[in-house]
């Protein structure tokens, strides 16, 4: 019990004093996860909007696949990316394994299906409602997609935040492809896993607290956004 409260005190001390090692780890976590989410949004929003809006053969199968990919196990994604990027792998020549870039790639694969699948649903619902009006205006595909993305902006941002929540809290993929190398690829979740097994509970707890605050903030932002959209536009 004493150990426990001592760990808490030290953790608070680390956070409040902005311990350089802690700050470095937090910043790298944010860099990796924000980059992967930005790429996933760039890829997933137009894809989700396209599938949500267009009717084409095999659409049902695409949707089932997008939904299924939302549940990819991070360690399996980590393993596959590891094999692709390792020296002997097809992308080995780029020397990306155990770099932040490798971690961004792995998290992108985890997050892109979440953003695509959720935005597909948002856009499909909106298109159901707007479709005849847009056709009546003779709107082309680009005008239509732009209209649906803009009018769905609050709910789409919620989808992106869900992706960020997944990325920032995930440990399996970044641990395998990043290697948890000090000052290089060490992020919050991998540090917590390592320091806990080493018995260094203070740093692990400090990072854990930051992670919880971040996760709570993301959830709060999501519900505030949803509320704003609801209040303004019903």
């Amino acid at each position: 019990m004493n150990d426990f409260s001592a760990a808490f005190a030290m953790a608070a001390q680390l956070v409040l004093s902005l311990d350089p090692e802690l700050v470095e780890i937090v910043l790298l976590s944010l860099y990796v996860s924000l980059s992967s989410v930005a790429l996933a949004a760039l890829f997933g929003l137009p894809l989700g909007a396209t599938v949500g809006m267009l009717r084409f053969p095999g659409r049902r199968a695409v949707i089932v696949m997008m939904n299924a990919l939302m549940g990819l196990p991070p360690v399996v994604v980590g393993l596959v990316v590891y094999m692709l990027l390792s020296r002997a792998g097809p992308l080995g020549e780029f020397g990306l394994l155990f770099t932040p870039t490798a971690m961004i790639i792995a998290q992108f694969i985890l997050v892109a299906p979440i953003v695509s699948a959720l935005s597909r649903q948002v856009v499909e619902d909106l298109h159901e409602e707007y479709g005849e009006h847009l056709r009546s205006l003779d709107a082309g595909p680009l005008d239509s997609v732009a209209t649906l993305l803009w009018d769905g902006r609050f709910r789409l941002l919620t989808a992106v935040l869900a992706g960020f929540g997944r990325a920032i809290a995930e440990v399996g993929a970044v641990l395998i492809v990043g290697g948890n190398i000090l000052h290089h690829t060490r992020v919050m979740t991998t540090t917590i896993a390592l320091e806990t097994s080493k018995g260094n509970l203070a740093l692990a707890l400090a990072l854990g607290m930051i992670l919880i605050v971040l996760a709570a903030a993301v959830n709060a932002a999501a519900s505030i956004l949803a509320g704003m959209g609801e209040r303004q536009h019903g």
């Binding site: 409602e129 707007y130 847009l134 205006l137 003779d138 005008d143 209209t147 803009w150 019903g234």
Partner: peptide, 19 residues
Amino acid sequence: PVMLRRSTLANLTHALAVH
């Protein structure tokens, strides 16, 4: 009536822009 999730004015300018 199909009302876009925008202001009254923006509902009008949107249709004009599409045209």
